[in-house]
Amino acid sequence: MRVDLFDFDLPAERIALRPVAPRDSARMLHIHGQQGLTDHVVRDLPDLLRKGDCLIFNDTRVIPAQLEGTRGDAKIGATLHKRIDLRRWQAFIRNAKRLRVGESVDFGRDVVAVAEERHEDGSFTLYFEGDDPVELLLERAGTMPLPPYIAGKRPTDERDAQDYQTMFAKKDGAVAAPTASLHFTPELMAGIEAAGIETATLTLHVGAGTFLPVKAEDTTEHRMHHEWGQIDADTAYRLNSVREKGGRLIAVGTTSLRLIESAADADGTINPFSGDTDIFITPGYRFKAIQGLMTNFHLPKSTLFMLVSALMGRETMQAAYAHAIANDYRFYSYGDSSLLIPA
């Protein structure tokens, strides 16, 4: 399909630079296949789902993966986006023309990395020197990797260390937050439990590639980034049991959705999973296991807007986003939410 079919005009003032407080007071647009559009807030979620449904969360934890350093007199920025091994990360490099394979970047605070390899997409493999775990080095020298549409408007600060982490964050490895889960609070989770709605967690380490624009003119020409994910056997069993009892699987975030669909058979059975996924969901895709999605509002011509268009229909989502813009919904990572139920 033509990528320009997924374009829309978004006023700059609709981009949220900070989250609302409390988190569950964010607005939420309910997009229902039979009932159309209705406006809510996130804390209404228990009333919009059914007893026996299951919300699926991503328990990845964002690491301080943004680094600023020097190579000689050149300033070099690095955004880590995929772990290779214990000491190596693949990274997008700012001012990459000033960095060659074999050269070292000093990120300060005794954190030095060697550019070992340059990849076709322009990214580098960085090898971090020393004996300290890379996680410890990042805690010393790194900052929270805010999305470019936020970081370009204001500097990262101490608030972001909390604001850009979900209450489910447990396993280090993401360089972008599973932002749909940012809206959840202990109070909301108590309401979800009281309503008889089940919950489950999986892990998908979100990469910085999620922010990359689609530069191709046709979706068939776009190369999706890889991300590592895991669904353990117990979680797979529980999710299959929910489906067998007639409950719906509602992914909280496109990351949870993509991993579930990667792990599912054609009949919807979810298998244990551990490894990379580069699934690219566009209109025409037949969903195997997921029956709903809670997600924030995405960028024009992004793979994520293509995904929600695949779930609900492109015209439906264009109309929903037009409604959101006209009614002052807040967009992107720190913005408002939507609940998508196809039928």
Rank of each mutant, 00 (worst) to 15 (best):
residue 17 L to R: 14
residue 17 L to H: 15
residue 17 L to F: 14
residue 17 L to A: 14
residue 18 R to M: 06
residue 18 R to H: 15
residue 20 V to Q: 10
residue 20 V to K: 12
residue 20 V to M: 11
residue 20 V to N: 01
residue 21 A to P: 04
residue 21 A to K: 14
residue 22 P to G: 07
residue 22 P to S: 06
residue 22 P to K: 08
residue 22 P to D: 01
residue 23 R to A: 13
residue 23 R to T: 10
residue 24 D to N: 02
residue 24 D to K: 07
residue 24 D to R: 03
residue 25 S to K: 06
residue 25 S to E: 13
residue 26 A to Y: 07
residue 26 A to N: 07
residue 26 A to Q: 05
residue 27 R to M: 07
residue 27 R to I: 04
residue 27 R to Q: 11
residue 28 M to Q: 05
residue 29 L to N: 04
residue 29 L to G: 05
residue 30 H to S: 10
residue 30 H to L: 14
residue 30 H to T: 04
residue 30 H to R: 14
residue 31 I to A: 11
residue 33 G to R: 13
residue 33 G to H: 06
residue 34 Q to P: 05
residue 34 Q to V: 10
residue 34 Q to T: 14
residue 34 Q to D: 15
residue 35 Q to C: 09
residue 35 Q to W: 09
residue 35 Q to K: 15
residue 36 G to Y: 08
residue 36 G to S: 13
residue 37 L to N: 09
residue 37 L to T: 12
residue 38 T to D: 10
residue 38 T to R: 13
residue 38 T to C: 03
residue 39 D to G: 04
residue 39 D to Y: 05
residue 39 D to L: 04
residue 39 D to E: 14
residue 39 D to V: 01
residue 40 H to L: 01
residue 41 V to E: 02
residue 41 V to K: 10
residue 41 V to Y: 01
residue 41 V to Q: 02
residue 43 R to A: 05
residue 44 D to R: 00
residue 44 D to V: 00
residue 45 L to C: 03
residue 45 L to S: 08
residue 45 L to P: 02
residue 45 L to V: 09
residue 46 P to A: 06
residue 46 P to G: 03
residue 47 D to W: 03
residue 47 D to M: 04
residue 47 D to S: 12
residue 48 L to M: 08
